[in-house]
């Protein structure tokens, strides 16, 4: 464990807490893409298949359980909760995310560390996570204005993978045989996809104005 990875995990945790706060405090999921939440639930379920077989550390196991439980809780809440579900922007959240799942799975079959069940699903989860934010970014683009908590949620979600890139660079120079090029390339793509969001987020922060995405 290094400071970059710990900072990344904490940033990721903060993004989830901000999302839960937004839904719980405002009893509304307006501006949140259910499709992105479903993709993230799939990412965690397919990435942590080794949850009960490979014990890494207490921290690792607890974080995996938190990520799986929180992503499933948000999906269930957005689908089932009678008050929250009414605020879901159903007609704005129309990204065809099944294509993202299909593309990630095909790529995982072609590009993986080893052609085994666990490695293919791990690569699938890495590729899918890089693309999972697209429905959310499209939804924000369409809805135009971004409420504070939603903006912070997306910001922290994008920032965590940037910390992981620093972690991979650090581990590359400090550990022999360390090679995570699948995660690293995918993490780079993932962070770049947030570039324009980060730009408009920074502008709104500098002008202390409400965040506006160009329609």
């Amino acid at each position: 464990m290094n400071i970059f990875r710990f900072a990344g995990d904490m940033t990721h945790l903060i993004s989830i807490l901000v999302l839960l706060l937004k839904i719980y405090a405002t009893k509304s999921c307006s501006g949140i893409s259910l499709k992105t939440q479903e993709l993230y639930a799939l990412v965690f379920l397919t990435r942590y298949l080794d949850l009960f077989t490979d014990f890494i550390s207490v921290y690792n196991t607890i974080m995996k359980l938190v990520f799986i439980a929180s992503s499933l809780a948000v999906v269930c809440c957005m689908r089932m909760h009678r008050v929250v579900r009414r605020s879901y922007d159903k007609d704005l959240d129309t990204f065809r995310h099944y294509f993202l799942i299909l593309a990630s799975f095909v790529l995982a079959l072609l590009v993986n560390e080893k052609f085994t069940f666990q490695e293919i699903f791990w690569a699938f989860s890495i590729y899918l996570e890089a693309l999972a934010i697209l429905p959310q970014l499209v939804l924000l683009q369409r809805s135009g204005n971004v409420d504070n908590l939603t903006g912070q949620y997306v910001f922290f979600l994008g920032a965590y993978r940037a910390f992981y890139i620093l972690n991979w660079i650090y581990r590359y120079f400090t550990e022999q045989h360390f090679s995570r090029w699948i995660a690293c390339v995918s993490g780079l793509v993932q962070t770049v996809l947030y570039a324009d969001f980060f730009y408009y987020y920074f502008i709104s922060w500098k002008n202390n104005a409400k965040m506006q995405l160009p329609a």
């Binding site: 490979d54 690792n60 990520f67 045989h177």
Partner: peptide
């Protein structure tokens, strides 16, 4: 060697 084999990251 073990560390790079086992997926020790989240």
């Amino acid at each position: 060697k073990a560390s790079s084999k086992v997926k020790d990251e989240l």
